[in-house]
């Protein structure tokens, strides 16, 4: 029973992270899977979302902090929406510059903005507290839920040990529900939007830009809208992360964790398919967690073990691109109801 509780608690912890990655992967799926926009600066949008949420809904600067700005303790939903808005604004700016140009320019511009944001986070301590990071970001409803659990435990002293341990981890269950709720709402919205005429135009642009333009579609405007929408989701993922981790620092937004693994998730699950995007996020995060256990048995240092795992993820990406470019699920065929 004891180990089962341990496994269950780990599973909740795992699923929260995988769920946040699923939001990122959905965002990338709008941009790449449906519109063919190559964004390899996901970490930048993720980071700006996380820090926006920390500034809006986080604590005011403490006496030992370098930062002098933000920390208004606004409710969590304000932070979540604020992250989406600020991330969208950044996407609007980058998109406005690069969306009319060749696709690889967008890739270079996004990787650049992600790196510049990392420099800003590191160096502008008045805003982000620099390398010391922002601490004590509140998790939504944390005090009331903890109080409720504590009350329950003290009023039922006869509870078996494993039940107590399960209840002590109760807040994570709530946060998991919150993440999954956000994910489901976003999934439902995206399925509706992407099946609408607007979504059809995106796929038309991805397949053949010239043909879409010839149909009278404003290709640049549609691409920009898709890019901004995807970035909004990435910003929200940042907010979800900030309020779960409660601590933000620049290392969390390195290219591997912030960008590369999201790409591998989408490509593995199947780009152009929202179910595939979510599946890929859980699958690759599961693989990542499993290799953490496995490399523990090998005679390597921590640096070597993590390098080896990244090599594995890179090899998986390349293998999928060569052997199974559609990914696991691949894109569903859309046929008119009248032709079926």
């Amino acid at each position: 029973m004891e180990t089962l509780v341990g496994v269950l608690n780990y599973f909740v912890f795992f699923s929260i992270t995988a769920g946040i990655y699923a939001v990122l992967t959905l965002g990338l799926n709008i941009q790449w899977g449906y519109t063919g926009l190559f964004n390899i600066g996901i970490a930048g949008f993720y980071a700006i979302g996380a820090y926006t949420s920390a500034l809006l809904s986080g604590p005011p600067p403490g006496s030992l902090d370098w930062r002098v700005f933000g920390g208004w303790m606004l409710p969590f939903p304000v932070g979540l929406l604020g992250s989406a808005l600020v991330s969208s604004a950044l996407a609007l700016f980058i998109g406005w510059i690069t969306i009319r140009l060749r696709e690889d320019y967008l890739a270079i511009a996004t990787i650049g903005i992600a790196e510049v944001l990392r420099l800003i986070i590191k160096n502008e301590a008045w805003l982000t507290n620099g390398v010391w990071g922002i601490k004590n970001i509140p998790s939504p409803l944390f005090p009331s839920i903890q109080k409720g659990i504590a009350g329950l435990l003290s009023s039922h002293p006869g509870l078996p040990d494993w039940t107590r341990r399960l209840l002590e981890g109760g807040y994570n269950w709530f946060y998991l529900a919150l993440v999954l709720l956000t994910l489901s709402v976003l999934y439902w919205l995206l399925e509706r939007i992407l099946r609408s005429p607007w979504g059809r135009v995106l796929r038309a642009i991805r397949e053949d830009e010239v043909a879409a333009a010839a149909q009278g579609k404003n290709v640049a405007a549609f691409k920009l809208q898709s890019f901004v929408l995807g970035a909004a989701l990435m910003g929200m993922a940042g907010s979800l992360y900030a309020h779960y981790a409660r601590f933000l620092s620049v290392e969390k937004f390195e290219p591997f964790y912030g960008t590369f693994i999201v790409w591998v998730m989408l490509v593995a699950g199947g780009s152009g398919n929202n179910k595939g995007a979510i599946l890929g996020a859980f699958l690759i995060w599961g693989l990542w967690a499993a290799t953490d256990f496995l490399t523990g048995y090998l005679p390597f240092t921590d640096v070597q073990a993590s390098a080896l795992r990244i090599v594995l993820v890179g090899v998986i990406l390349i293998a999928i691109l060569i052997l199974q470019p559609r990914g696991l699920l691949g894109e569903e065929k859309f046929v008119s109801r009248l032709l079926r």
Binding site: F260, W263, A307, V311, V313, G314, V315, L317, I318
Partner: peptide, 16 residues
């Protein structure tokens, strides 16, 4: 996209 994968593989083989 493959080159991004190659980049991570190369860098981490060196790191390893």
């Amino acid at each position: 996209m493959a080159s991004v994968g190659v980049a991570f593989v190369l860098r981490n083989v060196i790191l390893f």
